[in-house]
């Protein structure tokens, strides 16, 4: 059985949070979908809340704590990401954005990403399309077509009109699993292993 590394990032602030609840359900669905394709998912779930101080310290001083550096490395080496933010003021939360601001440039390039969010009402759902999706497009990630928004009412009702939350979760997870099945990432090349030879640097290449 082959394996893929799945990293889930939850930017919920309360404990427990509905953001984490959605993150867990998406993770379980993706794991199941990969399993259906005989791929074992190795999962790393990251609660940004636990590293909020470290993220801020890295933003203002450049110094990453050993734990945050591990997280950054884990994200860079993931074969796929599930990222979940609460929607604040019509956009991702500040903590969510700050975390992606401290990643190394290019570390998400080409990586499959499932975007998801939580909010009080469904009126916030398009923040996924006008805030999260463009940010990940800028980072050159491959964002799956289905973005999952869970409003407070979704946790109770069995869908009013559109697909139920459970079905949207499965559809998005299936899209992510298909992309992860097709590609693997070793993480960025180690610049300390194979430096550009000096003659090339000197020749301006």
């Amino acid at each position: 059985m082959t394996s893929r590394k799945l990293v889930t990032i939850s930017a919920g602030l309360s404990q427990p949070s509905s953001t984490r609840l959605l993150a867990d359900q998406l993770t379980a669905a993706a794991k199941r979908m990969l399993g259906n394709q005989r791929v074992e998912a190795v999962v790393d779930i990251i609660e940004l809340r636990d590293q909020a101080h470290d993220v801020t310290n890295k933003l203002v001083t450049g110094l990453g704590s050993p734990r945050l550096n591990e997280t950054i490395d884990s994200v860079a080496r993931a074969d796929g990401l599930i990222v979940v933010s609460p929607i604040f003021n019509a956009s991702y939360s500040g903590l969510f954005k700050s975390f992606f601001d401290v990643l190394e440039a290019d570390s998400l390039a080409g990586k499959p990403v499932l975007i998801a969010a939580t909010g009080g009402t469904a009126r916030h759902s398009l923040a996924l399309e006008h805030a999260l999706r463009p940010m990940f497009a800028y980072l050159r990630a491959v964002v799956v077509p289905t973005a999952v928004f869970a409003a407070a009412e979704d946790w109770g009702s069995e869908g009013s009109g559109g697909l139920s939350l459970a079905k949207r979760i499965d559809r998005a997870a299936g899209e992510l699993a298909a992309l992860m099945h097709a590609h693997t990432f070793d993480g960025p090349a180690d610049p300390f292993d194979g430096p550009t030879p000096f003659e090339q640097l000197l020749a301006g290449r």
């Binding site: 001083t61 450049g62 110094l63 990453g64 050993p66 550096n69 610049p191 300390f192 430096p195 550009t196 030879p197 000096f198 640097l201």
Partner: peptide, 23 residues
């Protein structure tokens, strides 16, 4: 920057690691 370590090595110059802000 690995390029600067490479430059120092190429010429046989010294290499100084500031060392203060990173692990």
């Amino acid at each position: 920057s690995p390029e600067i370590a490479e430059q120092a090595a190429y010429y046989g110059d010294g290499f100084f690691a500031n060392h203060i802000f990173w692990p």
